[in-house]
Design a protein around this nucleic acid. Structure first.
Lengths: 247, 247
DNA sequence: TCAATAGTGTCTGTGAGACATTATTAA
DNA sequence: TTAATAATGTCTCACAGACACTATTGA
């Protein structure tokens, strides 16, 4: 019944997978989860984690399940959104597959566990990942995920998804600096974040570092969108966005 | 070979379709292309145009082909981007299907021709379409397409995709007013558009209406992104965006 | 002349970049 | 007291909203 369309009019019946671009921010910089493929095709090569969508499973469910299998974490306290679907005819040597790419952002995630399909999984520096070869069309997916993440920091509050609660203003700023790749003025950053309604909520607590003045602590506020947006252009870097494929 | 995954691990092999949210701006307001389904399921009900992705066909190709079949236009001078993929298990009574939803924006498109699958096709006022019942999960897709279009006007130049070249400043402003649903100050609008680099290019020509001062004519500029963005909040309407599904 | 639409100029508030200054801790 | 980090304050420029005013056409 599912394949009813594959004969009489040349329609494609195909396998559907989800692939995940999972970012986390460490002190050192932005990391993406890569696996080394444990079986063909592309056995032994680096790839994004992912796998087949199961019968009776919704796309978001499949993404969350793969996330749990590959990293050992469950999706709570994690941001997840669909990126785009890739379905070029030649993208999988085994036959026609479509992959629904997801973007996942999380705070300082645990060391990943080797999953079912993955021989090994590790947090790769994004710079290195972009310069390496990845299986399938995963390099293009990674690029698009990075572009999307960069853009989303501007007008949403997802940056806070990278911070384990409670967090300091400097930690939140660090997220922007690592993902955008240039420093922000601490003073102006604080002003923007605190003026924006419901971006962060002060806990009233302080955290005292080994040295220096204690920092106020915050939790994520209820707002999903950031208004006014966090400016990214003007200086620092030219505002180059992603997507917008004009045909 | 394509179905290799469907047996041993519960993976889904399924049909993949594309569905299109095609908007155009008429004087009267924003319109979306709807068809009346010519065959089951949902025969006789309203739906978005779309159809099965064919073997050897990429997703964008499939979207453009469906567009041509359902409306008789080819994709040139038309904006097309992927919206999101919908794959909830129960969305198609025939069995498991995934649909890749596309957003298409075009100027004042011709009266649609009844296509292969479509009994009838017509430009429905968006307000009416949102209030009606649509086949499958097409109402949710339509909502998401409208949200995306509204958001994209802010920080991209897609509004010009609704205008047939050459166009006047008032025509471009009309696009914003119709899609956002509130009036914009003509003076400030002109200042923004002309100051933004490469949004529009003056042709030097004028168009004289039946009555009133002739208006300068413009063509679309090379810029895809609009910086600084066209502000949508402050007044008029609260800035409510789309997507950003926090899990 | 008037009606109607196109386009310019100006005032003002607000937000952002730059950067100086003050505050609070441990050693 | 010093080093180090956190937080506040201030100046200036650019931009957005409001709106008055001028320009150009046909009737």
């Amino acid at each position: 019944m599912v394949n009813r369309a594959s004969k009489h009019d040349g329609s494609a019946s195909a396998a559907v997978t989800v692939d995940l671009v999972i970012f986390t921010v460490l002190d050192a910089g932005l990391r993406v989860l890569l696996i080394e493929r444990g079986k063909p095709p592309f056995k032994g090569e680096l790839a994004l984690p992912g796998g087949f969508v199961r019968v009776g499973e919704d796309l978001d469910q499949a993404a969350l399940r793969e996330l749990a299998e590959e990293t050992g974490i469950n999706g709570n306290e994690l941001y997840l959104e669909q990126l785009r679907t890739f379905g070029a005819p030649g993208r999988d040597p085994r036959g026609r597959t479509f992959t629904v790419a997801y973007l996942a952002l999380g705070p300082n995630l645990p060391a990943p566990v080797a999953g079912t399909d993955a021989a090994t999984a590790h947090w790769a520096p994004v710079e290195a990942a972009l310069a390496s070869e990845l299986a399938f069309d995963h390099l293009a997916i990674l690029r698009e995920g990075l572009d999307r993440a960069r853009a989303k920091l501007e007008y949403t509050t997802v940056a806070a998804a990278f911070c384990r609660e409670p967090f300091t203003m400097a930690e939140l700023r660090h997220v922007y600096e690592v993902i955008w790749g240039f420093p922000l003025d601490p003073s102006n950053f604080r002003r923007k974040v605190t003026k924006a309604t419901d971006f962060v909520v002060p806990t009233g607590e302080l955290r005292t570092p080994e040295i220096g003045r204690p920092a106020a602590l915050y939790r994520r506020g209820p707002a999903a969108l950031l208004f006014p947006p966090m400016p990214r252009s003007a200086d620092g870097e030219p505002a180059s966005y992603a997507s917008s494929a004009r045909v």
